[in-house]
Design a protein around this nucleic acid. Sequence first.
DNA 1: CGAATAGTGTCTGTAAGACAGTATCTG
DNA 2: CAGATACTGTCTTACAGACACTATTCG
Lengths: 239, 239
Amino acid sequence: MSTPVTSASAGAGFPAIVATVDVVLLTLLPDSRELAVALLKREREPFAGLLALPGGFIHAQDDLDARDAAERTLLEKTGIRSPYLEQLGTWSGVNRDPRGWSLSVVYFALVPHEVIAQHAGGDVHMVSVDRLRGLPFDHAAIIEQAVARVRSKSAYSTLPAHFCGEDFTLAQLQAVYEAVIGEPLNKVTFRARMAEMDALDELEGVKRSDGGRPAQVYRLKKTFRDRLSLIDRGMGRAL
Amino acid sequence: MSTPVTSASAGAGFPAIVATVDVVLLTLLPDSRELAVALLKREREPFAGLLALPGGFIHAQDDLDARDAAERTLLEKTGIRSPYLEQLGTWSGVNRDPRGWSLSVVYFALVPHEVIAQHAGGDVHMVSVDRLRGLPFDHAAIIEQAVARVRSKSAYSTLPAHFCGEDFTLAQLQAVYEAVIGEPLNKVTFRARMAEMDALDELEGVKRSDGGRPAQVYRLKKTFRDRLSLIDRGMGRAL
DNA sequence: CGAATAGTGTCTGTAAGACAGTATCTG
DNA sequence: CAGATACTGTCTTACAGACACTATTCG
């Protein structure tokens, strides 16, 4: 059972807790166009040998904040830096870890598949989110919520663009949106929405052909590399 | 400065941290129809005497999880239980508390004004979210984010219904939505959306008059007392 | 019966989606 | 020039909002 810990630093009598961060690193598999999550084989007990989310302890002496700890953990465990990193939520309680009460601040990241191919260590396993089984702790619930968040936010933001490489055509981007959302989109409407969000830079003169007429190449504006542009559906339209 | 703490319970070598919960308790002021947040005068240093969010330490030996700690803290500090309590996020880092590194899991709650009038202790101050000043720690940023979340979610969910008393007419509910969102809504569209969300029970035969023809009285379905019903804007419509 | 509020039907403008036409490249 | 893909214009349909009309109660 867990018992309270007295902080030596912040004065006597303050209950202390073991706090960790976990990162849900997502990508789109290039062939099947499925969402996949990065998992690592656990070295230690509990659940040694099982695939789990990359995570680690928050080190108050080193990490400026939990986000900082998440970036550090992601880099140390997978070799990857993600410009986009969003807090998903915090999971805590006495039942999530057999060692006792624990708390984990969870972030999620989106990177193009090429980044994983180039930078990730060989011990990083990308597993389709539809074929997860036997995950330790509450990692299944965490991943489920991350996927739900990505899918729902994708419908009205630039989020899926983070699955694309640096440069892309509108047709490629639309295909990514369709893969994430899971249904086909109207080409005219898609282009109108992208224009409305005003988050893409047109690379002047740069075209890319896929067998036919070369398409204009775009790039996500610098401003939106680490944040999203959202569609404004003025409250009037919503209710 | 904060230094790491060694947990006595979870084995040697695990860094520990002081973790707290804070609650953003919101209501609609009855007269001005403004959003207001519950604040308490701080008894102790730092920032003794300033108005701050109700909060407290997570006690791993007593609290099942952080949500449990938030419910307990809210009840102890304000005398209020809120059926609706949603995690807003976690704030952490070395700069938010002069005593050093800290982490707070923040929840927000929505209750009708009458609940506060009846159950809240006299030391609970309801302050309009547009007239906040001199808040300690990062409480200003936390409240700002809570208000933004409530406003944006209100446009496509049953969230504002939690500001109403148990029973209400559609006209009353619409007025609450308009107060939260900050703009007038179309009566026909509002009623269509409410029907679509299918979250209200019609109290058969119960009518309430406000000087003219008595209106049908409704009540939030039990299912949606502690969760939301969302409008389905099928992804097709969104992008 | 008049005032006041509840609830609904109709009309109109706007926006989304289907479709097809034009444009521009490769081989 | 044929094939393939990019891009854009038009038409149709559906929904949101404005407006007004009917309904029901109170004084």
